[in-house]
Design a binder for these strands. Structure first.
Lengths: 110, 110
DNA sequence: TTTCTTTGTTGCATAGTTGCGCAACAATGC
DNA sequence: GCATTGTTGCGCAACTATGCAACAAAGAAA
């Protein structure tokens, strides 16, 4: 695969690599929201939240629609919600692996 | 969702947010590889490559099996390959959007 | 119209994180 | 001992997240 394509994919993944942005995506999965509706979910400066939203917009995960003074956000590609499934798969598999390690520790080589 | 879970997901996504690591994952999608087989695909110091692999191992995407002096790597959760599909969906949608913007530029407000 | 409020963005400074090569090291096998 | 394979400590450059303050845009109120 071309390196440019890998970089494009990496940019999308990077936009999803922050718990704050994942929470935004999760919330937008329920429907349109403006930033002022998202704000109470986080305790951070509105400028910081605005920048997180911008990161999601810049890669095309989130789109916006002006409505008066508000700016309604929505998921442009809801398939990102599926990505969560995979992430959970990785986390669960890792948890199982850790559990096994702990259980088998008393027979492991010293 | 609990913030701890969001952080766990974000860690997985972060491991996938580098073109180098995506290329490693892509290569391991074809089968087991040792780092020395991956090395010719990149022109970077082996220590750097080792750290990229470690990042994938730390979150449980990649596992290893010693074989003599080599260390065979494999995907523990091949579902990460599906994630690429979604990333491509985002990229394609964004490309379409950009195309539309360019096409419609001559009627946009100045 | 002018002023005020709400909503969101942007410049700046700071603290923290990441990616990288180099060099040294450990482990395995010849 | 020596070669191969991979990991780790260190320092540096580049990037990221954050809050603060100032700003812009749209509408409401005076």
């Amino acid at each position: 695969m071309h390196y440019e394509e890998l970089k494009a994919r990496a940019r999308v993944m990077k936009a999803l690599s922050s718990p704050v942005r994942l929470k935004i995506v999760e919330e937008l999965g329920k429907g349109e929201r403006c930033i002022c509706e998202l704000q109470p979910l986080f305790r951070m400066n509105k400028s910081t939240l605005s920048r997180h939203v911008a990161a999601l917009r810049n890669v095309g995960i989130v789109g916006e629609r002006r409505e008066g003074v508000k700016c309604m956000l929505r998921l442009l590609t809801p398939c990102v919600l599926n990505v969560f499934e995979c992430a959970m798969g990785v986390i669960r598999a890792e948890a199982r692996r850790q559990t096994k390690l702990v259980a088998g520790r008393h027979v492991a080589k010293p």
